[in-house]
Amino acid sequence: MTAVPAAAPVVPDEVGVAIDAELRAELRRRRRDVVLAAATPMALLALWEIGARTGAIDPLLFSPPSAILARGVELTLSGELILHLLATVARLVVGFVAGAVAGIAVGLLMSAIRPVRAALDLTFTALYALPKIAILPLLLLIFGITETPKVLAVAIAVFFVLQINTLAGYKQIDPRVLEAARAYGATGWKGFRYVVLPAAMPAVFTGLRVSAGMSVVVVTAVEFVASESGLGYLIWNSWQLFQPERMYVGLIVVSALGAALTGLLLGLERLLLPWRRSTPGRRRMRKGVR
């Protein structure tokens, strides 16, 4: 351990050469990893295409990727796909944000105020066990076939994940960290703002990522049965009309949507929790060697 980073030492030539070779080898290995990661899906798609064209697999059920792509372009140009995508995104975003905000808020209240925790913990834990999609019929009964039950179904699913994760985030805070906070005068609101809140944030983000996947499942399922629009409807309707290519397009777009939402949350996490990022020191060191 050194307190002060030493000035870059003059590296003897042969050492520099050896380090350079080592770095180049590592870069080669990384490029190979990227190529391999991309090659697997390409190969699978190629196999699929060949299998469907030669009749090795039933092209009626497993439409060749080229046909799916063509259908995707067609649906995009006609505007149908965009319409369904926007309908799903709207439900997803409104439900997700509402559920997440409420879940985090209740989780934090339960963390900060013991009587609130005592009053709600058991009930919410019991409600969490209920499969969220199972209450859709009840929501439809109450609200009719409008947007409200669809958005609400998403929001409820997200709410419980966030409430539980936020509270768990609070419970797992190292008591020694709380003691250090108290020793330095961070009590009451200050302790909450500067210690409890940041300490619970990683668990909150875990909850956001988990519920992102879950919310896509819920919105799709809701659209299967209770909607005339959205990607879930597109997939379900394609089954009813026996249009497998259209169904595959729906499946691909809905997965991309899930991936985009997860990616967005990961980006947000990196932005808001810079202290969780892996050490930039390592990168600096590597640059120094070059």
């Binding site: 020694r176 250090a180 202290w275």
Partner: peptide, 26 residues
Amino acid sequence: AFVFQEHGVFPWFTVEENVAFGARME
């Protein structure tokens, strides 16, 4: 002011923010 064995510095603050934490609370 306390110095603890471990886990006393706050991971979500930079070194500078940690050092000035007591002053910030005041």
